[in-house]
Design a protein around this nucleic acid. Structure first.
Lengths: 158, 158
DNA sequence: TCAAACCAGTTTAATAATGCAACCATCGGA
DNA sequence: TCCGATGGTTGCATTATTAAACTGGTTTGA
C-alpha cells in the first residue's frame, strides 16, 4: 500500500474523520466498545483479527482520544479499553452505516440484528437531518458554505 | 492468510457497509459524486489519487450498484459516472462523518466548509435518532435484537 | 504449590493491496 | 493531420495485513 495518503490536514471534515476511523477495524472495534467490550482478548475473539493489528489499532485509537486505558476495574490486574466521549460520538456514524445496509443491501435477510429502542423494543426510525427551524432535509436541500472566507488557493471541498 | 478478510457475508450490517464503502477512497468518491462530479478525470483531479486506483474503485462502486455509467451526456463521447439511489443513500453516512469531525476534531478551525440548508443558508442541526413514537434516542437508549430467531451457533453481533 | 491455562502483546515471514510512473488507444478540435 | 485531453492498463517498488509461533506476566485450580 504505500504510505496511505493521510487526510489529517485536509480541509474536508469527512476526510478528517476517515483519516481517524476510516479503516475496517477501527470502526468495528468502536462498535464492540459501545457494546461494553473492553478487554484486548475479547476484542480479538469477537472480531477475529490478528493480534498485532489489534495492538496497533487500539494504540492508535487511544492516541486519538477515542479510547482510553483504565488500569483494571473488574479485580484482575489487566487494563481495559474504554470509550471517551469522542468515542461514544461515533455512534451516529455506526447507525448511519447500519441503516444504509438495512435499506440497500441485496441480502437483507442475512442481517442478524435490528436496532431497537430499549424502552419499547421497537425498531428505531431512520436518522433525520433537520434545519435549525425544524424542516426535514434531504441531500438536495443542503449546500456547503465556506467556513469564514475562502482563503487564496483554498479549494472548497465537501 | 492475508487476503484481507471480507465482511461481505458477515451478519452485522455495519460490517457489510464497511465492506462495500469502508475504504478511504470510495467514501470520498461518493462525496464528490454527490456534488455533481461525474467524469473520471474530474474525480482524479479533485481527489488526487492514482488513476489505476480510481479505475478499480469506480468499477467496484459500479459493480455494487452505487454508481452507474451513463454513455455520454454532455455531448462528448466519453462516459460518466452517476449515483444510483443506493449511492445517494450514503448521504447520511457522510453527514455523520462530517458532524463527528466538527464536534470532536482537535483543529476545527482547519475545517473549510459548513453544511447548511439551502433555503436559509444556516447550519443544519445534528443528525437525530428517534423511536417510532417520537422520543429522541441516544446510544444508551438503544439495544440490538435478533432479527427473527437466533440460529444455532449464530452469534449476535452489532 | 506447581502446572496449566489465560492475557496481552511482539516477532517473523508470507501474501495482498497501494502508489507512482510510464505507456497506450481513442476522441475532439484546430 | 497533429496535439492535447480522456480513460484507462501494465510493471514495479513499497507497505499493510495476516496467521502462526513465541514471550513473559497473571490467574486458576487440583
Amino acid at each position: 500500500m504505500v504510505k496511505r495518503t493521510s487526510f489529517e490536514h485536509d480541509d474536508c471534515p469527512i476526510a478528517r474523520s476517515l483519516d481517524a476511523i476510516g479503516d475496517w477495524w477501527s470502526m468495528l472495534i468502536i462498535r464492540e466498545a459501545l457494546f461494553g467490550i473492553s478487554r484486548f482478548s475479547e476484542f480479538q475473539k469477537r472480531l477475529g483479527l490478528a493480534k498485532n493489528i489489534l495492538t496497533v489499532r487500539l494504540r492508535a485509537l487511544v492516541d486519538q482520544g477515542i479510547l482510553k486505558t483504565a488500569p483494571a476495574s473488574d479485580g484482575s490486574a489487566y487494563q481495559e479499553y474504554l470509550l471517551t466521549p469522542k468515542g461514544r460520538g461515533v455512534f451516529p456514524i455506526l447507525v448511519a452505516l447500519r441503516q444504509w445496509s438495512e435499506e440497500f443491501d441485496e441480502h437483507p435477510e442475512e442481517i442478524a440484528t435490528i436496532l431497537v429502542d430499549k424502552e419499547k423494543g421497537k425498531p428505531v426510525r431512520k436518522l433525520e437531518l433537520y434545519s435549525q427551524d425544524g424542516r426535514l432535509l434531504s441531500a438536495a436541500d443542503t449546500a456547503l458554505k465556506p467556513r469564514t472566507v475562502v482563503k487564496q488557493g483554498g479549494r472548497v471541498t465537501a
